[in-house]
């Protein structure tokens, strides 16, 4: 085993992830190469320094505080809860009303004014509100599911 191979295996070596023959080869190289031995010694001691800090203590009561914050944040957003509850019902109702209004306009308005009636329908403000709402929700889900780790 040469130095390059040894350096490549060192991480798995310290984590005891090598099989017996690979481990023996690293042991053999460390026994005869002062440079790799120094490098291994520095790594081992640095690891010991880091391990001596011990796992981060999780602040007491954090889980309870986080859960309560989540419930409180939900209560603090009544407007959003209202739309969440009613938009699924309101949207089909609004769509049916709009369709009925268009039908009424088409059957009762003189032919020359039909196009302007249709353009008003296309700009239906209910539709715009729903799109915005959908985008917000999609963004939230996408932000969570699509943004990948570097």
């Amino acid at each position: 085993m040469n130095c390059r191979e040894c350096q490549k295996q060192l991480s798995d070596y310290v984590d005891d992830r090598l099989d017996a023959s690979q481990r023996q080869a690293v042991d053999g190289h460390l026994g005869e190469c002062a440079e790799c031995k120094t490098s291994f010694g520095l790594l081992e001691r640095a690891r010991r320094v880091l391990a001596s800090e011990g796992p981060a203590e999780v602040p007491g009561g954090l889980a309870e505080r986080a859960a309560l914050a989540a419930f409180a944040a939900e209560r603090a957003q009544p407007a959003r809860s209202f739309f969440d509850r009613w938009i699924p019902v309101a949207w089909p109702a609004a769509a049916v009303s709009a369709a009925a209004a268009v039908l009424l306009l088409l059957t009762t308005t003189p032919r020359t004014t039909r196009s302007s009636a249709a353009s008003v329908t296309n700009g239906d403000p209910v539709r715009v509100v729903l799109d915005d709402g959908d985008n917000d929700l999609a963004g939230e889900v996408l932000g969570v599911e699509v943004n990948d780790e570097n």
Binding site: P59, L62, R65, A66, A69, A70, F71, A73, E74, E140
Partner: peptide, 22 residues
């Protein structure tokens, strides 16, 4: 920093509670 990590954890579960259904 522990204080900032704690803030992050709280915000994490606020968002989790809101979006878990999705």
């Amino acid at each position: 920093r522990p204080a900032e990590a704690e803030d992050v954890v709280q915000e994490t579960y606020i968002r989790t509670w809101q979006s878990l259904g999705k």
